[in-house]
């Protein structure tokens, strides 16, 4: 029998052979990178902005008009960037449509994709409703508007919770597999939304719209004290959640304890404690407390603490996304 002609070339990567540095176990490979961090972060900002906006709107659409409208203007956009991040992170981005042709009820990502899609639609409607010439109608609070607001509130809660749940349901990754992750990320999302609003207010203090109504000193102070109050409360909760998160990991299984090592004496220690705890929580907390108790609203202080909070919000997601992938359940 004649032997066949040999066909083909060297398998794999053309003719260049890459010898990669050693990896003893496959745990510790980073599959989700900064694109996913951006996705989680921007989803948080959008959800938070929407959540704050609608909450403020429910409480007093007149008094908190600036917050309501700024939040509404912010909400639709970060999440679109986030979705772009998610799609770019897919290994087969052109297959993205498959996410939107299936609903897998057990898959947090599938549900999340749908929630985010709905959220985006609702946030756009809400955005339109809040455009200057429509805002008056909003204030009248017809049933339709109320329904949109309610839907928006539910969806923004969903999105804010989703990012954490996406991670926390994975028993494979002890760093993520705790209920404190959704808690932490939820609070952080609302804070980020708030920080976004606060920053926008500072950068564009006149806020647009019907100047006559909005330009008094009192209006500004109203909005700011709302922000500071919520900020203070949420930051306090966030601090609590971090403490519970750490104690929780530390007092749990062998896997969890070693997972904790990553932010206590391990690879992400500095980033977690300086980038998140100090910059993103402690400083904004101090600044907010100072403003709140002195009733002394300084724009620069506000802006700084909002920026730091946003940085902290990104950093904490980055740490969580990466650290989680480095940890593995002990198998045997």
């Amino acid at each position: 029998m004649e032997p066949p002609e040999a066909e083909g070339g060297f398998p794999g990567s053309g003719n260049t052979i890459v010898i990669k540095p050693s990896i003893r176990k496959r745990a510790g490979m980073i599959y989700w990178n900064y694109l996913i961090t951006i996705y989680l972060f921007s989803a948080g900002v959008s959800a938070g902005a929407m959540f704050i906006s609608i909450t403020a709107g429910f409480i007093n659409p007149v008094k908190y008009e600036r917050i309501v409208r700024t939040g509404a203007y912010i909400a639709p956009f970060p999440i679109m960037a986030g979705m772009a991040g998610l799609i770019l992170d897919l290994e087969r981005p052109w297959q993205f449509w498959r996410l939107m042709t299936t609903i897998e009820l057990k898959s947090v990502m599938s549900l999340g994709a749908w929630i985010i899609a709905l959220f985006t639609v609702v946030s756009i409607i809400y955005f339109i409703l809040n455009l200057p010439k429509n805002y008056l109608r909003l204030k009248t609070r017809g049933n339709v508007i109320k329904a949109v607001m309610l839907l928006g509130l539910i969806l923004s809660t969903g999105v804010a919770l989703y990012t954490g749940i996406l991670l926390s349901t994975l028993t494979a990754r002890p760093f993520w597999n705790t209920p404190m992750i959704p808690m932490l990320l939820f609070i952080s999302a609302i804070l980020d939304g708030l920080a976004g609003i606060s920053l926008a207010l500072y950068l564009k203090p006149s806020g647009g719209g019907e100047r006559a109504v909005l330009e008094t000193e009192e209006e500004i102070n109203n909005n700011k004290s709302f922000i500071n109050t919520v900020d203070f409360a949420l930051l306090f909760l966030l601090i609590l959640s971090v403490v519970v998160f750490i104690i929780g990991l530390g007092g749990s299984t062998e896997s969890a304890v070693s997972a904790l090592g990553i932010i206590v004496g391990g690879k992400y220690t500095a980033l977690f404690w300086f980038g998140f705890v100090a910059l993103g929580v402690a400083i904004p907390f101090a600044a907010t407390a100072y403003e709140l108790f002195n009733q002394n609203h300084r724009a620069w202080l506000n802006a700084m603490s909002a920026s730091f909070a946003l940085i902290g919000g990104y950093v904490v997601r980055s740490v969580i996304v990466n650290a989680g992938q480095l940890t593995q359940a002990v198998l045997y």
Binding site: Y31, W32, L86, D89, L90, E91, R92, P93, Q95, F96, R98, L99, S107, M109, L166, L170, A172, R173, G324, Q325
Partner: peptide, 9 residues
């Protein structure tokens, strides 16, 4: 498969 890598994690 869209390559979301969720299953890997």
């Amino acid at each position: 498969c869209i390559g979301c890598k969720y299953c890997i994690l």
